[in-house]
Design a protein around this nucleic acid. Structure first.
Lengths: 149, 149
DNA sequence: CTTAATGCAAAGTATTTGCAGATTT
DNA sequence: AAATCTGCAAATACTTTGCATTAAG
């Protein structure tokens, strides 16, 4: 944890960004909730617990910066706000989104290589990243009634 | 085109929804722009050309209904609004999104079966649909400078 | 001391909702 | 006639922006 924070400080200072307590606080919240898929507002609420004077605009600006530095990835689960997780350049992973209860489940897997190769070849499109979401019913909901709403 | 409209009328009346000129007009715009990935607002503007009294709330409500009936699928390309396309239960297709110019390219392909099987087996998650987006650089942009902004 | 970053409040978008009146069945 | 649907405007939700002040390097 301390290591990650030092890493961020170095990344920032190297690029002439400043290492502020607010930026540190956002990173700490993210590190404490590694699988949280937190939204900006959720991060804001958590940061405020230790840092009551934090403003939401700073959270948004910090998140933008962390995405730009490729420390975070912005995700969209279709629930009306962006959510964030640490970029994982090595381990591609996908999301299972339950259509009934809305639960997010993470799946690791790198089975897209062949597909990527084909797409690159056929479309001359250079793939940098991908996002894969599966919608369906999680084990908890499968046995219950599947009707929405 | 006429066939699709009749189909919608029947679907609606069968489920005790009403077949209104507004709903018809939204469907017509979508049928005329099959690869448009139109947003609610773009649909609204197009509908207004022939139907100036249309209200934007009706567009949103109609799109919600069409998604609920599984006629449309709601997509998110991360540009701040939802976009819509006809559901394609047979031909799964994916989107290539250029990080530089923002162009969307559609790719057809059904290479995810193995991955789906594995996920279903390992997570007891019943997959109904998926959304796959590749981010990268399209052929037009590959040769140009890749720097963003 | 210089420049970037912050907090606040206001502004901007996209979307949703309440409701009276219009329309479909 | 009964129930749904519509348009409008107001409300909401998320995010961005302007600006005076504060803080980092």
């Amino acid at each position: 944890m301390q290591k990650k924070i030092t890493e961020l400080r170095d990344r920032l200072t190297n690029l002439d960004y400043k290492f502020t307590p607010q930026r540190r606080a956002v990173l700490e919240v993210l590190l404490k909730n590694p699988d949280g898929h937190l939204s900006a507002d959720e991060i804001y609420e958590l940061v405020k617990e230790n840092y009551p004077e934090m403003g939401i605009a700073t959270v948004y600006r910090t998140l933008d910066l962390l995405v730009k530095l490729d420390i975070l990835q912005k995700l969209n689960f279709g629930d009306g706000c962006s959510r964030f997780e640490f970029s994982q350049s090595e381990h591609h992973h996908h999301h299972l989104i339950c259509l009934k209860c809305g639960k997010f489940i993470e799946v690791r897997g790198d089975l897209l290589e062949k597909l990527e190769e084909m797409i690159t070849r056929e479309n001359q499109f250079e793939i940098i990243n991908h996002e894969l979401k599966f919608y369906g019913y999680c084990s908890d909901c499968r046995n219950k009634n599947k009707d929405k709403e």
